[in-house]
Design a protein around this nucleic acid. Structure first.
Lengths: 296, 296
DNA sequence: AGTATTTTATACCGATAGTATATTTTTTGC
DNA sequence: GCAAAAAATATACTATCGGTATAAAATACT
């Protein structure tokens, strides 16, 4: 993950300072000193301090997303060990990058954009956990999986919080996850016997399918592509234009897009735009899945 | 709850603004305009914006504390209905005063004092829930009750969050609590059979007993009394001094202190200091319990 | 009525986020 | 290798905010 050298330097410095001193206690000047850059440079890469914070969070999210995909490669969908490791990924990222401290700062921001982003992220996580619970524990059915996902995340988060608050030992997310999953098994059986359901699984389904989501994904995609095309060279531009044309066509062909994404990753490998490309690829993947869901 | 008229006006205005615009987006000037007071007056009652926020939170907490005590009067310790209603109290308060929004703002504060206060509050809630779970579901034993308390709070909080995020209907904490408690029963049975325990019940016990807690309670108590004595009349002063003398004596007599507290509540009824007195009474009650625990 | 306290109005300080710009440095294209 | 273009720097500036200080006016107390 190369990104722009200076941009990375800023993000890295800001990240350290935000965790060490807190978001509000860190002034722009602090960041400039720590990153050894000038004010102009900072505002060349970010339009505000908030956007800088958001960039940090986005980076960590993206890294976690990739790791989860890697963990699933070649493995059975029902494999509980994979699920545990995948769950742990995000929590470990939080630990590694001390994100909890940052999230708390984010939460307080009055910035609507960031709030919306965080909400969206939580919804996505819920949907993912929900789907994976159904995969592993109740294949073929997902009647209760939203309930279970909320329970799982709620318990795990609070367990980690209490652990951090009360014990000296370093937090071990996997240990917590294993313990909670054991508890959940008896609970899931019992609930299915009783037939009680709290949240209907369609609650957030508009996030998983539907025109709204597809349109939003497409918007983000086009926006990102626009940004990248400004900085890409001619060879790269060919790929980008072709991809853009295919994905916005009447009936985009999945195999072509998947091929293009592989090529894109390759062409942008070790360039400053590598990070941006990984985001575009994610968007395209999600868009395809979304469209597939509609056609079924 | 009368409090000082102007102080109340400020707290009320600030509360509305914090929820509406967010803590950081609300300037002192906004509060002054909304409450129709001058800057001098504001800083006469609060030393900072943070302290003003803390006052709002403290007020809500105190109200919840009182309501929980009232709910328990004359009822059986094992009564599940009482427990449910008591749990709902705090969540309803959060809803009523829109505290979740505030908590998020608080979380971001770099102010160490407020963070410490919020942490303490969470610990206290955990201890309370833990004790009550043992009361109701496993009388005489509390081996697993800390685990269970963390699970319960974790699930309930996330359920409420998801409900708020995803549905139009107004949130009903009691409904959530009942659903979660049902789920927990099968889980608790299962866990006790397996014998697995995550957190030891002594994790936060230093909060429930020990010299440290007693000393801290006493400190807070004396500080509050000092503050009140400055504004009390001579009759009230007699009570206060007597209480202070008794509680700091070598072996404070419980029945005397309890009697004094009843008198205090009566003497300060409908005065500006009523709110402060209720806090003192709380502190005294906790201190007595703490001392009793040591003598056993 | 006269004293003490509270409230107001207002000016001020230091720090901050963000803007603007002229100058220097680095990168890029040929 | 050199000139044009882009990026980075240094610096000065604006507006806002939290908080302090103080003198004058309003209110409360006895």
């Amino acid at each position: 993950m190369k990104m722009n050298k200076r941009k990375w330097k800023i993000i890295d410095a800001a990240h350290r300072l935000f965790i060490e001193k807190g978001f509000h206690a860190t002034s722009i000047q602090d960041i400039l000193d720590e990153a050894e850059i000038s004010k102009g440079t900072f505002y060349n890469y970010f339009t505000s301090k908030n956007e800088c914070l958001l960039a940090i969070i986005e980076y960590v999210e993206a890294e976690g997303y990739q790791k989860r995909i890697e963990l699933a490669i070649g493995k059975d969908q029902q494999d509980e060990e994979v699920f545990i490791k995948q769950l742990a990924v995000r929590l470990n990222m939080n630990k590694k990058y001390n994100m909890l401290a940052l999230f708390n700062h984010v939460m307080q921001l009055d910035d609507k954009e960031i709030r919306k982003y965080m909400d969206k992220q939580y919804r996505a996580e819920l949907n993912w956990v929900s789907k994976r619970i159904a995969d592993v524990y109740t294949p073929g059915k997902n009647d209760y999986s939203l309930d279970h996902a909320v329970m799982l995340l709620g318990m795990v988060h609070h367990f980690l919080h209490v652990w951090k608050m009360g014990m000296e030992e370093e937090v071990e997310p996997e240990k917590v996850i294993r313990f909670i999953l054991k508890r959940m098994k008896s609970m899931m059986n019992d609930q299915m016997k009783s037939g009680e359901k709290f949240f209907s699984e369609e609650l957030f389904s508009f996030e998983l399918s539907g025109e709204g989501r597809a349109q939003r994904l497409l918007d983000s995609f086009i926006k990102k592509i626009d940004y990248i095309t400004k900085k890409a060279d001619s060879e790269q531009l060919d790929y980008l234009h072709f991809l853009q044309k295919e994905i916005t066509s009447e009936s985009p062909r999945k195999f072509i897009i998947e091929s293009m994404m592989l090529s894109l990753k390759h062409v942008f490998k070790d360039t400053e735009l590598e990070y941006e490309i990984s985001q575009v690829v994610q968007l395209a993947e999600k868009y395809i899945k979304c469209q597939e869901g509609e056609e079924v």
